[in-house]
Design a protein around this nucleic acid. Structure first.
Lengths: 228, 228, 228, 228
DNA sequence: TATGAATGAGGCTTCATTCAT
DNA sequence: AATGAATGAAGCCTCATTCAT
């Protein structure tokens, strides 16, 4: 690794972190995520991405082929990181009701704290999922989200605290809808209706409301706890 | 082919529908909505829009100034039409619970049937609401949506069928979230989790679930009716 | 004149000055002079001229044919007005030396007070005099300027106060050079050397200097008078 | 035809002179000076400039950003070259009177031989000095012109051959006015008054006259020498 | 005499990408 | 593994001018 005994010690002064392909690629991907999230696929400029990078435009093409290739890898990275955090949650050790509430609150907050991820998914939907469709990796990774929820619901049913007819996919859809929309439509919603719901208290209310509206039709005794 | 055997022989030579500025503008706007919804603001090509029009590229600039001007007007038109339909609903004559359910089902279906509108709003959010912010018209029009809901909730509280603490803005947010997400994230959601929820029955289930999850925390006796 | 007993009194309310071709043309020419002087021939916009007019763009074409036709007429008008003022000077009744000084001061001040005329002449020179060449009127009108000067010099020589070898055309050239340059190059000169010479006192100094440098080689006893 | 039988076989395939950014830029600037001088800023066509270049339109934008950027650089180059020649004159070793005369003759001839420079300055004045104002470089460079003249005048005063009250800036203004106007207004002046002054002898007369009219008010014994 | 609507041609600029080393 | 220079294709927009009444 790095300047394998060659005769050109030229770049040993600065940028020693170069000559490290992985670091260069990570650097590019980090910048790409920011720029794609800000401007969309067609709105993003390869020049801008390259300029914000610690390396050159040529390297972007060297490692990612073309703009779409870079976008695809950016999307994959984003999904991968999110999924990783969900796995780390480790909800299987909580009682079902607490686990469900925790999952809702986690999702709501996670989306809120990762607007760039939300924007990338919005952008991908604008593109009809074209690039997601090309990546089996992403699809496989994320299916696990519903499995996790399914285990929680099953335990709840077994313990008699959840209703029998609760559909994991529908619940996941509902949680996603509110958590996602809360971020994705913040701009237009705030412009039209003011940003009361966007304030700290507003967001807390919405999170509580998400918990309540998800739990109420699922839980047999629908008084939500205070965990958070 | 165009205008073959029409009933308006006025100025029989050619382009009789022209010299009608309003028609020309409407024609352009209709095409623009389609193209912007499909490709986004930066992804759309003025050339493509013009080509799909019955007039020329020059006229696009004549009436709308530039690409952003056309986009802004397209957005305005889209919001205006939606709002008009909401007003036409005339929910003030239904009993509160039925009115609320009807509003939910209307919103859910309307969004589902107007994916281009949803896409335009997604695109506008990708642009951080920049163009919506420039249009006082849109903002003013849409505030009425919450007023309408507020009237329903108030009537419900007065009649003792709705809880006292139901917040109109939050309810509106919740209805929007599910109705919007259902369309906006269809591509990625289906790719990852399959399109069960996207089938006819799946959509009916989701609509019912939207009604249930909205009504349950609001209604004192939360058994939803069958209206729809 | 105006609305000859017709059946359409429609425009009798305002714009009654219309229906007066001459007034309309004068209005257009006045605006054209301003815009051409400000922006040059290619820099000027027919749309801008028309918009600043009390009439419409179509009328510009109706009366002046095309942009170049309008420019040509604008140039003619400008020259005509200047020449008129020179004729009005009536220097033949002053003693030669006073007449010459007065001509210099008049030219210096006139140019200073009519920057738009100067700019039109600059613009015409940028165009290699193409449009002036097309107008015999302008050329004929302006030749008189040197005749006038020649008469003054002749009287001076006859009276023994001017040198025998003073060439009218060269003197005219010298007067024009300083008076013209003083206005034409004001922008660049001030930017580079500051605007001391552009102040009220600076301009008075330059005017005096113009008088001195023109008179000194012409007058036998070269002490300039104080007339101004 | 291009590069036929050249002596630089380096990279024999094609365009060997390329890959030399400085040469490319100089090539573009040379052409740009010609075209801007001929047509003005708005009258010039980037397409025409590019076509006359040995490179492509794209490179114009690559190196100069936009049309105005190219114009600005063209103006800078033009001023820079002129100033360089003035510095090379090295008048400080001549006796003051000869130095002044030489400066006048140099300026008069230089302007006469560089009509493109004059035209660029005319054009810049049409634009109200907008682009010159943006270039501190140009302004700083040219101030030296007056310093040079000031040194000559001071030496003359010290030696008793020049009057005490001669103002360097005013003298510079006067020299510039005649030298500049001689070129800038050639077209209209010749059209109106004939081109006698524009002939070889006419120009010699004007140059002599410029020397005489500048020296006479400055020199104590005002008989001009024959140097030139 | 007047006008609102319309337009072909051409202008300036940007984009993702490749070349040559 | 890296890079500065270069580029064809296509994008957005403006201009003087004419049409149809």
């Amino acid at each position: 690794m790095a300047n394998s005994g060659g005769t050109k010690p030229k770049s040993s002064r600065k940028n020693s972190w170069k000559q490290n392909p992985q670091a260069v690629q990570e650097n590019i991907l980090r910048v790409a995520q920011e720029v794609f999230a800000k401007n969309g696929l067609s709105g993003a400029r390869v020049d801008e991405i390259a300029a914000m990078t610690e390396t050159s435009k040529r390297m972007v093409y060297y490692y990612f082929g073309d703009k779409e290739g870079l976008y695809r890898r950016t999307l994959e990275e984003a999904y991968r990181k999110v999924r990783q955090k969900e796995v780390d949650l480790d909800l299987d050790h909580l009682d079902p009701r607490a686990a469900l509430e925790r999952l809702i609150r986690f999702t709501f907050r996670h989306h809120s704290e990762n607007p760039d991820f939300i924007r990338l998914v919005m952008i991908e939907n604008i593109h009809h999922g074209t690039y997601l469709a090309q990546s089996a990796t992403i699809r496989d990774m994320n299916r696990g989200a519903v499995d996790q929820l399914e285990r929680i619901l099953k335990r709840g049913r077994d313990e008699g605290v959840f209703r029998q007819d609760a559909d994991p996919l529908t619940i996941h859809w509902q949680i996603s809808a509110m958590s996602f929309f809360n971020v994705s439509n913040r701009a237009t919603f705030s412009l039209i209706f003011g940003d009361r719901l966007n304030s700290a208290t507003g967001q807390r209310q919405l999170e509580d409301w998400a918990v309540e509206t998800v739990l109420r039709p699922v839980v047999v005794d629908p008084r939500p706890s205070d965990q958070g």
